[in-house]
């Protein structure tokens, strides 16, 4: 696959949320507002890219038997950097994302990319893969958050979007709304893919 292909595959063809169905817990929890989705997406992309680069750099001397604990240490280091920086420089976002920033450590998208890709590919390819997967994750969150925030709260990125007689459907920003939305989006994507095939 070309280097550009390593980047673009994460956006649709191998989208971590919609195609690989990984990292669903934070996806469902944080997609209740567009602002949270953007913040989580940026944090995830940073950790993905950095951990992919480091894992790829050290792949030569990491013994196979202890690769997973080493990957986890690398990932946890970058997550802590993100967490501390957010608390210091973006306190409002840090407060809104709450527990989900530290939980990036156990997000299977990141360990999945380290194990399946960065551990056996060059630095440049791993960087492109991390960027693409991060972007794919962010886009998936944005799609869900757009539906949920507009229907459930009548706003988009905090700005009011409603029409005459609009009543916010509270259920959309609560957990059931997350399941309903992701189910409908996945169903639509499968229908589309099948129709084209």
């Amino acid at each position: 696959m070309s280097v550009v292909g390593e980047f673009t595959k994460g956006i649709y063809k191998e989208n971590p949320v919609f195609k690989q169905a990984l990292g669903l817990c934070p996806t469902l929890a944080v997609s209740n507002s567009v602002q949270n989705a953007v913040g989580m997406g940026v944090a995830m992309t940073f950790v993905l890219v950095m951990s992919n680069i480091i894992v790829s750099l050290i792949r030569g001397f990491v013994p196979k038997k202890i690769r997973i604990p080493i990957y986890i240490v690398v990932i946890a280091t970058f997550v802590t950097i993100v967490d501390l920086s957010m608390a210091g420089f973006a306190p409002a976002l840090h407060k809104a994302l709450g527990i989900f920033v530290p939980l990036i450590v156990v997000n299977c998208i990141i360990l999945g990319r380290a194990e399946a890709f960065a551990g056996r590919n060059t630095v440049v390819r791993s960087l492109m893969d991390g960027l693409g997967m991060g972007l794919g994750f962010t886009l998936a969150l944005l799609v869900l958050a757009t539906f949920r925030e507009t229907l459930g709260n009548g706003t988009f990125y905090g700005l009011p979007v409603h029409w005459k007689g609009f009543e916010p459907m509270l259920i959309m920003i609560l957990p059931p709304g997350a399941f309903l939305t992701i189910g409908l989006v996945l169903g639509t994507m499968n229908w589309w893919d099948r129709r084209r095939a």
Partner: peptide, 9 residues
């Protein structure tokens, strides 16, 4: 090796 990695981290 694991020790070195954690010390750097």
């Amino acid at each position: 090796i694991l020790g070195i990695v954690t010390i750097i981290a």
